[in-house]
């Protein structure tokens, strides 16, 4: 886990850019305990988790 300082307001996209994760790369995003999207707003204390794509069901 890493702690990031980012602008306020910010989005998941800003977090990815700050971390150097390519935006076009397929991925699963979790924002706290929900599925996140690239344009979701993040606030101080939020947890953004990036996973590789998964399959199943």
């Amino acid at each position: 886990m890493r702690f990031l300082e980012i602008a306020d307001p910010a989005t998941v996209k800003d977090v990815l850019e700050k971390m150097g994760i390519p935006l076009g790369m397929p991925k699963v995003i979790m924002l706290n305990d929900r599925q996140g999207a690239i344009d979701d707003e993040v606030v101080a204390g939020d947890r953004v988790t990036i996973f590789p794509p998964v399959g199943g069901g």
């Binding site: 397929p26 599925q35 996973f51 069901g57």
Partner: peptide
């Protein structure tokens, strides 16, 4: 494995958005 958390919290239905995105 962090993927455990994805399936546990979001279910396999996580793929609706993930596969929709790609």
């Amino acid at each position: 494995n962090p993927l455990r958390q994805v399936f546990n919290s979001l279910g396999t239905n996580v793929c609706i958005d993930a596969d929709g995105d790609r």
